[in-house]
Design a protein around this nucleic acid. Structure first.
Length: 600
RNA sequence: GCGCUCGUAGCUCAACGGAUAGAGCGUCGGACUUCGAAUCCGCAGGUUACAGGUUCGAGUCCUGUCGGGCGCGCCA
């Protein structure tokens, strides 16, 4: 509604410019947001016309105004500010249609069809089966889940896929350590979550290997060369390599152990996913996909896309994109990481003929994806142009990088539990137990919302710093703040109902306060935010918009009474406005992993 | 060394090439007999790392310098 009005003005001013200049072809008019509401609701900078019209932009603005006053213009008040032609729209007049629209659409308000009919495959998470999830995974998962919801809200059909990294020498390490030190212990027997249990053995392997190194150097220092050699030959690292070979050969006891431990980890990770509201439509396992790429590469070799180097390895020349060469098959014919990804992408397109495939993967793999996409394009796949690497930055701690060796890795389960405790004590401290139906459930919701909001409010591509102690406060620009606004509005609406007041769009001109106009504007602009978030693959667009709405509303209901407004008519209309704000918040919450609570 | 990326308030983050660079946290000071104070209001805090350039206009684009981060494996 508002957008339509703005566009009407734009067209009208463009016409006026043509008439004034007597030129048919003028550059398109730019549209901007005035910095302050006193300066209007939409701004049209006229600088760029001063050359072709050979007039000062201020003069152009005056001429346009004069022309429009004489020849008519859309609804609104013209405000000239230097070279800016601004318009103050009669916002309150847009309230009625906005109200009807939001009420009719309900939970669908904000959805659009900008990606209508598009099939999009979205890959994210991709955990290893040798350790539990940490903070870095959480950013990945939050972004993945949020982007999925955002794309769907824009009309796309989304298939969320996960690729479980369950093979390789690193997986064998935890297996080996378990076989060496585990005895008969199981997650059941120790009461540990499976992923933490396995992760413990992965850490154990590292210390074991380190001790082994120490033993070797001790033997060398004491001149016992024979012992040193013996130790080297049975080094844990070598044994892990050997185990990988056995795994690939299908040695039964290794496969059994692998199955057992993978299940432990995946059960544990699955529990974390459930706890964090993460889900997938399809799961791929690297133990299967790692075989895919070879035949594709050989086909490419036949077609002359790749070449065989002197030593027998298959390579591609990346000179065209300013890079070196890249090996795709080792000289012994085995595949490497990128070979698998080539095969997997092709296989996926067969499984689900996507229009677009988005990989949510850390920025450190930007090079890998650049090469991967180039290769797929070279192989002649048209859809290679629609592959995207949604690159996100690292999550660092105030002290610097998370380092497993120094034990500074923030565990996902621990962090969530910690936040839940914080939320719970907050509820109890404030004496809100009676207000909420289920304290634990509410605490969980608040914790999760806090975490998701914190991770999503930062533009994905940027590195971010996460202070587990300080950063997750429940005050200020946070998930709980948004939840609180939702709860407050919900509470007001309930109170109104009890008082026999029903929301009604009685007379929009009753909404004459600045804050009210601002709210109408923000609600009207919400669908644009949904569209922009999808276009930019950026959930923070939604987060920012919802924060603006919440902050404006919060300030508004402190300054103005809603239920006890001067007249019943004003009260009803303000209730109508409040209910739109709530609907808008609820719809946006779903896109960024914040839960709506009626009370908290 | 080469490539990518970032440098904005004490801290964490914003800002389609547009007007006086904004929020939150923290500091200080106010507001609960009033629809829920996980709230609100106010003060202070900036030569947007630096130097040039393009433009009517640059935090944003270009070049260079300095400083972070990440890549540059026949690891994944």
């Amino acid at each position: 509604m508002l957008t339509k009005l703005k566009l009407e003005w734009k067209e009208c001013i463009e016409n006026a410019l043509k008439k004034i200049s007597a030129l048919d072809d003028i550059p398109p008019l730019a549209m901007a947001e005035p910095p302050k509401s006193e300066l209007g609701d939409v701004a049209f900078p006229l600088f760029s016309y001063s050359k072709s019209l050979r007039k000062a932009p201020q003069k152009i603005a005056e001429d346009v105004k004069a022309y429009l006053l004489e020849n008519g213009h859309p609804e609104g008040e013209i405000i000239l500010a230097g070279a800016y032609f601004n318009v103050k729209l009669s916002i309150e007049n847009t309230f009625k249609p906005l109200y009807d629209s939001v009420k009719a659409l309900g939970d669908d308000y904000g959805k659009n069809d900008s990606l209508g009919g598009k099939k999009i495959m979205l890959e994210f998470s991709c955990p290893n089966t040798n350790k539990p999830l940490h903070l870095g995974h959480m950013r990945n998962d939050s972004i993945g889940e949020s982007i999925s919801n955002i794309l769907k809200a824009n009309g796309a059909e989304v298939l969320k896929v996960n690729l479980i990294n369950n093979r390789g020498v690193h997986i064998c390490k935890s297996m080996l350590a378990y076989r060496e030190f585990g005895g008969s212990e199981t997650p059941e027997s120790t009461g540990e979550k499976g992923d933490h249990f396995v992760g413990r053995y992965y850490v154990k392997f590292a210390t074991w290997a380190k001790e082994w190194d120490k033993k070797i150097s001790e033997a060398e220092e004491s001149g016992n060369a024979e012992l040193a050699e013996e130790l080297k030959a049975s080094h844990p690292d070598l044994r892990a390599q050997k185990m990988l070979k056995e795994w690939e050969d299908g040695k039964e006891d290794v496969i059994d152990l692998w199955n057992t431990m993978n299940k432990w980890t995946l059960d544990g990770i699955g529990e974390s996913y459930k706890n964090m509201g993460i889900s997938f439509d399809k799961i791929y396992y690297e133990s299967e996909t790692y075989k895919y790429g070879r035949s594709e590469v050989l086909k490419g070799l036949e077609d002359g896309v790749f070449y065989r180097a002197e030593d027998g390895a298959v390579k591609i020349d990346l000179d065209e994109i300013g890079l070196d060469t890249k090996v795709l098959l080792r000289k012994d014919g085995t595949t490497i990481y990128i070979t698998q990804d080539i095969g997997t992408a092709i296989r996926r397109h067969d499984d689900y003929p996507f229009d677009s495939l988005i990989y949510v993967v850390g920025s450190e793999q930007a090079y890998h994806f650049k090469v991967l996409f180039y290769i797929l394009k070279k192989l002649g796949y048209k859809w290679a142009d629609e592959l995207h690497h949604l690159s996100y930055g690292m999550v660092n701690l105030p002290e610097g990088k998370m380092k497993s060796r120094e034990g500074t890795v923030v565990d996902a389960d621990d962090l969530l539990a910690e936040l839940e405790n914080l939320a719970k004590s907050e509820i109890i401290e404030k004496g809100r137990e009676a207000l909420v139906d289920d304290v634990d459930k509410t605490a969980h919701s608040i914790a999760l919302s806090a975490l998701n909001y914190y991770l999503l409010q930062v533009t994905p591509s940027r590195d971010m710093i996460f202070d587990p102690k300080k950063s997750i406060s429940f005050n200020g620009n946070t998930g709980p703040y948004l939840e609180y606004m939702g709860a407050r509005i919900s509470s007001i609406l309930k109170k109104a109902e009890e008082a026999g007041l029903k929301e009604e769009c009685v007379d929009p001109s009753l909404l004459k306060e600045d804050a009210e106009k601002e709210l109408i504007k923000l609600i009207a602009e919400y669908p644009e935010a949904v569209e922009k978030a999808a276009k930019d693959f950026d959930p923070s667009v939604i987060a920012q918009h919802l924060y603006s709405i919440s902050k404006t509303f919060s300030s508004y209901y402190h300054d103005y009474q809603i239920i006890n407004a001067e007249t019943k008519e004003i009260a009803k209309t303000r209730l109508a406005l409040s209910s739109l704000v709530l609907q808008c918040l609820k719809n946006g919450f779903k896109l960024i992993g914040v839960e709506y609570l009626k009370s908290m």
